[in-house]
Design a protein around this nucleic acid. Structure first.
Length: 829
RNA sequence: GCCGGAGUGGCGGAACUGGCAUACGCGAUCGACUCAAAAUCGAUUGCCCUUGCGGGCUUGUGGGUUCGAAUCCCACCUCCGGCACCA
């Protein structure tokens, strides 16, 4: 008998799947389309092709592929495509270092990913493959940009933006982590620049509301997005500064504390600051303060234990609720980018305002009764952030603050001094990048006509070849003079092309739609094809995309639906986030030298072992630590299944197992049905692949234990063959090559063409049960009893047990609990 | 600070609706096969006491509910992730 040779087996089946194009599916109306079959769109996040795939990729695609196989065998027409998110900084930075064009390095990496996906045996419909850096793809990225532009969802404006000095480009808010560039870790600085934005804030409420429409997303991902959008309801209230004849609106979530406002604070970037202090005694000090704050990084400014700082302006505003004049300050704890960049300060009921008041000796006024022992710092129990009866609030005194809330806002409204308002933390999505390796933004600038979109029939605006990829504070494209100089599509006069490129997150915000009609040369996708396949039924990827990619893709889907290009509001009905694999308890990184190359393990143990191992390590949504011993354990299991197959093929006959079999034959067949049942349920219950695989291991273990006693008879042999083929069928989603091989050898059939097996309920039920006997809740004996034994008989058996009698030792039984089929508990006193 | 998630053998983890805690895998020990080793097959393996039979203890800690708690409730501790001067 030959040993388990995964290489040979895997090559053989990979050839079959490639030659027969097994995993390709047709759109409605195309040849090969099967009417009436339900569809399922199974999608893993597309990889960013840089170097070679790592274990994170292996896990993601192993998990997704097992789901695709499971669904196919449940009668679904499964679309399972693959592509590459192939624009982006790393390829460009590599180009700057080595001089190798980004396209060359990227395409080499794509080739490597493609080869490994085939070697892993992932069931991909290759006819739908795409790469976002190809003109065939980004032509449509540009088309979407124009769709947004023409519908006022893309706009160009000057705004304070986050600039990474190292990568020499602006970044979206979402790409700044702790005040640092997400990619390179450099501290970002604020700059005022004219940039392209997508109006995602327009969709803030719908992005929040439609969480309801999702079938199954991890709760923490929804929470993260909800926090990121950061919706808060409140009111806008106008404070007036008569001295300079200016109104200062503020946003507050606590209009009920308006009577407690004792001072007023502007952000250092506030545009009216200059006017307020020009020519006054405060001017020099304010200017110095603003400059100092401007030099500080976002990280310094946001530091937790930072003392409150600020400077009085020597001006005051009038509180609209009581006419009180309150002094104005500039302080960096007020942020220009949130609300109106100005706040009313209520030190009695806000801890930050309280801190500031303490430092500057400002009055603290209580306007809500109540005490919060946790938050209170002052002697009088202030600041108090909670609810209670209003006090010191004129006509509102004595009212419950929550009840008075709307009343105050309505009253202010009638006076023209306020209105209900909603604020978001979410900012519009900044999409322009001063970099080379991305999709050009398809607009031109004409002295006569201004910003002019490139007409659709002139797309794509192709990325020109350049010599120097290094950014010089503007896009490297600016150096491609011949490309930049163009004619205005509107007036025909001289014009210049936009030289910024799009954020790569734009590319990946719609790729799941292109798969549906990847060869379409006339449109980004056919509406009918999109209506048929969308939404993605199961999306799989890393949790690191919880905010960025997943929120942008949701926004795109809604915008495209509004423009009539799609019939769904949400792209991903179900989301599964896989946990990260570590090594020696630490995140893998080249600098730590603890990376695992999937290729090496596939070479040594085969793809089936590598794939099954990452699914067996633990629940896939959680992380796990990679160990070579664990890999070997899984390899041992697959080898055992292989040897069992070899032996069964030789020593048993093909055919169905005997339903009337008894004894060990029945035991093994029953175990196979138990494994079917458990594997199916655990698969459906949140993709608990680790226990699915352990059930198959148990089945194989039992087959080994029983096989030598079964080979002699027809019914025994049939039981072994059935158990082995069943194990192959159940392990197929994880180890598709070995599963196919074993199943074909024992049944003559191709396992992926066979429906997923169903457990026979008759074989799941056992004739006898092990009755657990407890005394006062403690296990004292186990008794075998027929399954249908009545309660009284079970009690009699329990009392008759010698072991039980010892623990009863003459005490009186005060209570008897019988759970039929499970246990008897005797309570004594 | 706020919001999530998690604490179970030497290790990764299992336990469905409150009912046999520790499935499966790793590691370890012993045995068979072998001249030998590897591979393979088989047995043992939570901790403590006991020669044995057997007994006691055990799911982060403390309390509660219950005939019965890893599971439900209360308080606390630790770790991981996200957000954080957001008015």
């Amino acid at each position: 008998m030959a040993g388990y040779e995964p290489k040979e087996i895997e090559r053989r089946w990979q050839r079959v799947w490639a030659d027969e194009r097994t995993w390709e599916v047709a759109n409605p109306g195309q040849p090969g389309y099967e009417e009436g079959k339900p569809k399922s769109y199974v999608l893993e996040m597309l990889p960013y092709p840089s170097g070679e795939p790592h274990v994170g990729h292996l896990k993601c695609y192993a998990v997704g592929d097992s789901i695709a196989h499971f669904r196919r065998r449940h009668g679904f027409e499964v679309i399972h495509p693959m592509g590459y998110d192939s624009f982006g900084l790393p390829a460009e930075n590599n180009a700057i270092k080595t001089g190798e064009p980004p396209r060359v390095a990227t395409e080499r990496s794509i080739e490597s990913f493609r080869r490994q996906f085939r070697e892993w045996g992932i069931s991909i419909d290759w006819s739908r493959e795409l790469a976002t850096h190809t003109p065939e793809y980004y032509r449509w990225t540009q088309w979407i940009f124009l769709q947004l532009f023409e519908n006022d969802l893309a706009y160009r404006t000057e705004a304070p933006v986050q600039w990474c000095p190292k990568d020499a480009t602006v970044l979206a808010n979402e790409q700044v982590v702790d005040g640092r560039c997400e990619r390179c870790g450099t501290e970002v600085v604020q700059r005022n620049l004219e940039q392209w934005f997508f109006r995602i804030t327009e969709y803030a409420d719908r992005l929040l509301e439609d969480f309801e429409a999702l079938e199954s997303w991890p709760e923490h991902v929804i929470t993260m997005q909800r926090n990121w959008i950061g919706r808060s309801e409140g009111a806008e209230v106008v404070f007036r500064c008569d001295e300079v004849d200016l109104d200062f609106p503020v946003f507050t979530t606590r209009p009920d504390t308006l009577f407690g406002a004792t001072f007023f604070v502007l952000a250092p970037e506030h545009p009216e600051l200059e006017r307020l202090v020009a020519g006054t005694a405060a001017e020099a000090e304010v200017r110095e303060y603003v400059n100092r704050v401007g030099r500080e990084s976002a990280e310094e400014r946001g530091a937790e234990d930072r003392e409150k700082t600020g400077v009085p302006l020597g001006r005051s505003v009038v509180n609209p609720v009581n006419g009180e004049e309150i002094p104005m300050f500039v302080a960096d704890y007020v942020l220009m980018e949130y609300g109106t960049g100005a706040i009313m300060a209520v030190p009695g009921h806000d801890s930050r305002d309280y801190e500031f008041a303490q430092r500057f000796g400002l009055p603290v006024k209580r306007v809500i009764a109540g005490e919060d022992p946790e938050a209170a710092r002052g002697d009088d129990g202030l600041p108090y952030p909670g609810d209670g009866e209003m006090t010191g609030s004129g006509r509102f005194d004595g009212k419950d603050n929550r009840e008075a809330y709307d009343e105050i806002v309505a009253w202010l409204g009638s006076e023209g001094r306020g209105r209900p308002a909603v604020n978001y933390r979410l900012r519009d999505w900044l999409v322009s990048r001063q970099r080379y390796w991305g999709a050009p933004i398809p607009v031109v600038y004409c002295d006569e006509c201004g910003i002019v979109p490139v007409p659709e029939d002139q797309l794509p605006v192709e990325l020109p070849e350049v010599e120097d990829y290094a950014p010089q504070g503007k896009s490297p494209l600016a150096a491609a003079e011949e490309w930049v100089a163009t004619d205005c599509p509107r007036c025909g006069g001289a014009a210049r092309r936009e030289t910024d490129t799009m954020d790569t997150f734009v590319d990946s915000s719609w790729y799941f739609l292109r798969y549906l009609d990847a060869q379409n040369r006339a449109a980004a996708w056919d509406r009918e094809a999109a209506d048929f396949w969308m939404p993605v039924d199961q999306y799989i990827g890393g949790v690191e995309h919880a905010i960025l990619h997943l929120m942008y893709a949701r926004f795109f889907t809604k915008a495209l639906a509004d423009l009539g290009h799609l019939g769904v509001q949400e792209p991903f009905a179900n989301l599964f986030t896989q946990g990260m694999i570590t090594r020696d308890g630490a995140k893998m990184s080249k600098s730590k030298g603890n990376t695992v190359s999937p290729g090496d393990y596939v070479e040594r143990y085969g793809a089936d072992t590598a794939r099954t191992y990452v699914c067996f390590m633990g629940p896939p949504e959680r992380g796990g630590d990679w160990t070579d011993e664990g890999v070997e354990g899984v390899n041992r299991f697959l080898s055992r299944l292989w040897r069992l197959c070899e032996e069964a093929e030789e020593r048993t006959q093909a055919g169905e197992p005997d339903a009337a079999a008894e004894g060990q034959a029945r035991e093994l067949v029953a175990k196979a049905h138990w494994a079917i049942d458990k594997a199916t349920r655990d698969f459906q219950r949140g993709f608990q692949f680790n226990t699915v695989i352990s059930a198959v291991m148990e089945l194989v273990n039992d087959a080994y234990r029983l096989k030598d006693g079964l080979y002699g008879t027809d019914e025994g042999g049939a039981a072994v063959r059935f158990a082995t083929a069943t194990a192959a069928s159940l392990i197929f989603p994880f180890a598709p090559h070995l599963g196919s091989e074993v199943y074909e050898r024992l049944t003559g059939d191709r396992v992926w063409e066979r429906p997923w097996p169903e457990a026979d309920p008759d074989l799941l039920a056992s004739d006898t049960v092990t009755l657990v006997v407890q005394v006062n809740g403690k296990l004292r004996d186990r008794i075998e009893a027929p399954a249908e034994t009545p309660k009284e008989e079970l009690l009699r058996l329990a009392r008759a047990s010698e072991k039980v009698a010892k623990h009863l030792n003459g005490q009186q039984i005060v209570k008897e609990i019988v759970v039929p089929g499970k246990l008897v508990n005797l309570v004594v006193r």
